[in-house]
């Protein structure tokens, strides 16, 4: 019989109480149990970064973490990045402006990884950004639009634009 536990987890500021199989990954839990399909599963072995979410402020791979491990923690997904009135996060705005996405599949993981990165590195160089997303694979853009967007978002977030 499957081993089922009850967990309490805050996702995008909303508290959820749910029963999950212990083997369910956090990514599957977010997508299947909570219907938050913005988090994408690209490789399910922790390399591509598409499934990245922010857990207590840190970027983590939701495919490498079990839902039960998120018990008692706060999770932010791509659905939680925009403001309450739907206004885009400066990074989302910059991705839009700089063509930082094409098919959009890696985008949620890029955004969550970079939101966490910019909090710790508010004034990054191009090289810093390239290293920061070296664990996120984008097959469409060649990364350039993503890097340009992040450079601009960093300036906007610091009030320098």
């Amino acid at each position: 019989m499957p081993d089922i536990r009850e967990i309490q987890v805050s996702v995008n500021g909303e508290d959820h109480s749910a029963k999950v199989e212990t083997r369910t990954s956090l990514g599957d839990f977010l997508r299947q149990n909570l219907g938050l399909t913005g988090t994408h599963l690209g490789c399910e072995h922790g390399v591509c970064g598409a499934c990245t979410v922010i857990l207590d402020g840190e970027a983590v791979r939701s495919c490498l973490m079990l839902a039960v491990q998120a018990n008692g923690h706060e999770v932010t997904t791509v659905e939680g990045l925009a403001g309450e009135e739907g206004e885009l996060h400066p990074l989302q705005e910059a991705f839009w402006k700089h063509h930082g996405l094409q098919c959009g599949f890696c985008t949620p993981g890029m955004l969550t990884s970079l939101v966490a990165f910019l909090r710790d590195n508010p004034n990054p160089s191009e090289r810093d950004i390239r290293e920061a997303i070296s664990g996120n694979i984008c097959r469409c853009t060649g990364y350039q639009g993503i890097v340009d967007a992040t450079l601009e978002a960093a300036k906007v977030m610091q009030g320098r634009v």
């Binding site: 913005g38 791509v78 739907g86 885009l88 839009w96 959009g104 599949f105 985008t107 949620p108």
Partner: peptide, 17 residues
Amino acid sequence: QRMEDPRLLTGHGRYVD
């Protein structure tokens, strides 16, 4: 700027899965 993007940037794309 692309009309596809606001949806995709906010996690509201609709892929098969």
